[in-house]
Design a binder for these strands. Structure first.
Lengths: 196, 196, 196, 196
DNA sequence: TATGAATGAGCGTTCATTCAT
DNA sequence: GATGAATGAACGCTCATTCAT
């Protein structure tokens, strides 16, 4: 533990503090609204120290994004059981993701900003890592069993994540979050979009 | 300003030049990447003059957003015929909007940036204006005829605009734009999401 | 006069103030010891204003060098009469230059610094301009009349400017400046170096 | 440090490594362009360790200068034979020094930088040490035998070192180095400068 | 003794906005 | 009204030095 831990950022509490402060500031003020100085202050750390952990502001932003993406993906697959029926798994994935967004509004806001930031138009897209196979198999099953429409997986993804993100954004922005009954209706609607 | 025109910005060519230049610069470099000076230069207009048309950078951004929102809405309803069947109208609205996004990538990028910019977290949301009634009537019909799911209109909207924006973003970012057959499939999928 | 003057820097008093302040600070503290902020303060001008006249610190340094080089060259040729005997002209050039150095210690120090600064290893070398021809003709005469040694002009130059600069540096650094009699001896010595 | 060696820096290999790295970095990037950290890295030594050998950056620079000055002086007197005629000894000294400069361009560049750096305007000048007597005797002979002009030794020195340094700088900067015949001409010219 | 992560003052530069012309 | 030079606070980042280990 004193040398390596499985999560690269868990091993360094300073790094965590910086990322935590960055998350709060960036989601509140945007990348440009939060200065390195304010970030340092918020993290209770001198400016120079940030640069021992990140090459610069941009790298810090990327690192935070990677972190969040990873976390979100992990949350998405919490309690995921490949043995369950496809529909049950779909519900699980959708609910998990939506719950993550609502319970992590700062992460959500940051990630949306990041996705549409024109000065960051690159970013290693797919860091799906260990879950990539799971996802592939999920879609594969759906196609094979004739449950999913014959559309490419990235279009199916858009049909799911599009509404999910839009609704999460609304809920976070202040619109009342959907109750349990309503939520299931929305999930059903998304299923209808991708199902034959 | 001494004449009344229906479109408040059409009356002033300078204002147009500024907004046009702002659109290009903002979509390329982001709000912060484009300085007022560069904007002035790109518009071929002195810096000071911009401030005679807009109170400041932020107002300029808001004004540009309003402009684009209006334009997008107008494009959405191009050729819209209330007499057509609901499904035909749905297709029309979807296709119109998607076509607008693809043919106006700068406007699309700018609007996405704007939507997720935390330092602009206010912005008079609904400027649907003349089309508001049309939209209300569209959804009203769907509910009344038992064609649409019993979900609030803003959720139905999310079920439509979510995928549409996600797909437009992909198409603009470089993924091959969907062909005509594929496009209809996607529209059908969106319809499935909102239809009973 | 309100648009152009023959000396590009004379036309702009702000530019002059900046260059003047830069000369003082750079010669005292070196290029790195003098910050743009201190320079601005010393010039009685806000920092930002400096950047309206010079692209950056480096350009300012180059501009100052060019200025000084020009001035030094002009001083060198003050009262130069091509009709005088070669030896008389040699004396004139030497004395003029030496006098300029002693009466402009800041310019001298700055120029020496500049010449040996490793981060400025380029600089348009020969900005001799109008005097180039005069100099060429001076050396040409010396060669033609068999007065000068058969060494390339840049070596002859080194034989003259080397001691001149070394002595100027000494004099400025505090060693007592040579009296008139002594000065003539030194000039004679330099002449002996280049003369057959 | 626990043993006495004639050269104080030879006793400590770490110190040597630091000075060697400093020489390379300083001559390439200047005093300010090379950070203590880069210096440590280049020397393969931890930063903190440098401060165990030198009080700070400035002292390190001074120490390096002293080292080089000593080395140059030693090189100057290599094979010097007091029994040889004055002129032969002059040639030897001149050639030795010039050869040292050309074969040690980093040392030469560093020393030139140092000499004109205004933030180092102190530096114990004359560390001629063991060779001081030799030099004094050299000049003394020249005066006594009526071979040298009646000018103070520091002026004679300037008449020699001025051209020598100027030519070395040229040669190192890229101008073709003088061939053997040419070199003797230059030495003769310097001799003419100081000789009656 | 030896280390190298931590520090924070200070750097060069930018740019939204103002206001004298 | 129209202009664009002037402004100075604020930015991201560096680095000589220290000191806990």
């Amino acid at each position: 533990m004193n040398v390596h831990s499985e999560n690269p950022s868990a091993g360094d509490p300073k790094r965590r503090r910086i990322l935590e402060a960055a998350l709060g500031l960036f989601s509140d003020e945007g990348f440009h609204g939060a200065s390195m100085a304010s970030l340092a202050k918020s993290a209770g750390i001198p400016v120079g120290t940030i640069y021992r952990h990140f090459a610069g502001k941009e790298e810090l932003i990327h690192a935070l994004y990677v972190e969040i993406k990873r976390e979100r993906l992990a949350a998405m697959f919490a309690g995921y059981d490949p043995a369950l029926p496809l529909r049950a798994r779909f519900d699980r994935l959708w609910r998990n993701t939506f719950a993550y967004c609502l319970s992590h509004p700062r992460e959500f806001c940051f990630a949306e900003q990041y996705a549409f930031s024109p000065f960051l138009r690159d970013a290693g897209k797919s860091i799906q890592g260990e879950f990539k196979a799971e996802l592939t198999s999920f879609f594969g099953e759906g196609y094979r069993d004739g449950v999913f429409k014959s559309l490419p997986p990235d279009i199916l993804s858009s049909l799911i994540s599009g509404p999910l993100n839009a609704l999460a954004a609304r809920a976070i922005a202040g619109a009342t979050k959907p109750g349990d009954a309503r939520l299931q209706d929305v999930i059903d609607a998304c299923w209808d979009a991708i199902a034959v």
